[in-house]
Design a protein around this nucleic acid. Structure first.
Lengths: 233, 233
DNA sequence: TGCGGAGAAAAAGTCAGACCTTTATGGCGC
DNA sequence: GCGCCATAAAGGTCTGACTTTTTCTCCGCA
């Protein structure tokens, strides 16, 4: 997605990171830099750089005379896009999808409300275009195309909210939607009700109706939660 | 707070990180590892580790033959607690406080609703205790004591939501509350209405009334937004 | 004049080895 | 049984040499 494994240390990270987030080394496990360097056939300096990055993500802690200790999940920087990607690729993908979807359900309605207040004419147009694209691809097994427009739609909303923290969740939402499409229950065409809601959100934003945009987005969120059985039906 | 500057590379980071997030090196600026190493009087290996960490936060990008380029704000990992701390310590503290408060206003009501569903008896007790502590310290210039209970209250809520992403915002909320108390408009005693609302949230959670907990927390959020002039009065 | 390729230079990337610093631990004496 | 000290194990730091990639420049040719 964003950063492929640039450099040797990046390559090491792409192997170690997923292993740690997948729980292959349980919290408390102790690794030794030298041993890791040997295992990955890189120099100590390269391995040290990799460990530093893992440490900055709070996945591990390096202490003298002890080694590199794997930290408990509660310490991890779970908002780090890299960490999110690693976890979504691993075994607890379902758990992760749930957590992230709940986060979306909290953030996106508020973001939509703000978007209604701040969206430029251009953004309104983009939004409508995305919604129409979703409608067009909502039938006949065009899941990939639908996903594309869906992601674009939510990105525009988050960016138009003019809130930096919201905007940076665009990648997260993209990952969640992609995960849902490719590994979840969307074997058939998307729920027509959801498609309609997106069109209505685009309308509400265009009409600067913040309350309505928020409420409609909340309905979309409820749908997403139900898909994952987080809410009672 | 969490990680003081452990090791030489940590020391370098605590100087370079704030400088970059403060915009001292505008996006596009190019730094050279060797020059930085000289400036900070550390070896290249140490400087390389520091740069790796900055790179993992997407504050900079390192490219051969070019150097270490400062990335635009839109690329930064703004959820990284370290980055948040650096920015809160710098010049755009007010902007940052606004962004984070809006985030809080989206997340905390939902978290409170979930907390009402999932809180253990022990957590309910803690919550009540915090609320009472807030009441007790809400008069007579006991701002530090009030802050302590306030932070604890919101931490319990976020943890009791049983959502990992929400729980990890505990530190962020703590920073925001601390920032508000120490650098913002709270020269006098806190708003009695806010104190009352906290007590009521604790009640609602104890009574497992998710909707009420959510609504009350939303009112607290509105108050916080008004304090920063984000909402019309 | 403009363009494409060869070459040079600049900067990061990698490595190996030596040495320093901290700290857990185990043994020794009290 | 308790506390102190020596020891060793691991990460931390530094240095210098070498490699690799990439960009810039300059030259020759069309």
């Amino acid at each position: 997605m964003t950063t492929p494994g640039r450099g040797l240390h990046g390559h090491v990270l792409e192997s170690l990171g997923p292993a740690i987030t997948a729980g292959e080394y349980p919290p408390g496990s102790v690794l030794r830099t030298d041993e890791l360097a040997q295992r990955f056939e890189v120099s100590r300096s390269v391995m040290r750089e990799a460990v530093r990055v893992l440490e900055s993500m709070h996945l591990v802690e390096s202490r003298r005379r002890v080694g590199v200790t794997v930290l408990p999940t509660s310490e991890w920087n779970v908002y780090d896009p890299q960490v999110i990607r690693w976890r979504l690729a691993g075994a607890d993908r379902p758990r992760q999808l749930r957590s992230l979807t709940v986060l979306r359900s909290a953030v996106e309605p508020v973001a939509a409300g703000l978007a209604a207040e701040h969206a430029t004419a251009e953004e309104c147009a983009e939004l409508t275009e995305c919604a129409l694209g979703m409608v067009a691809s909502s039938r006949g097994h065009q899941l990939e195309k639908y996903l594309f427009h869906d992601v674009a739609f939510h990105r525009v909303i988050l960016n138009a909210s003019r809130n930096e923290m919201f905007a940076r969740l665009g990648d997260v939402v993209a990952e969640v939607l992609a995960g849902r499409t490719r590994h979840q229950v969307m074997f058939w065409d998307p729920d027509p009700a959801a498609v309609t809601l997106h069109v209505k959100v685009a309308e509400a934003v265009r009409e600067r109706d913040a309350a309505r945009a928020e409420e409609l987005t909340r309905e979309i969120a409820v749908g997403a939660l139900q898909e994952l059985d987080i809410l009672a039906p």
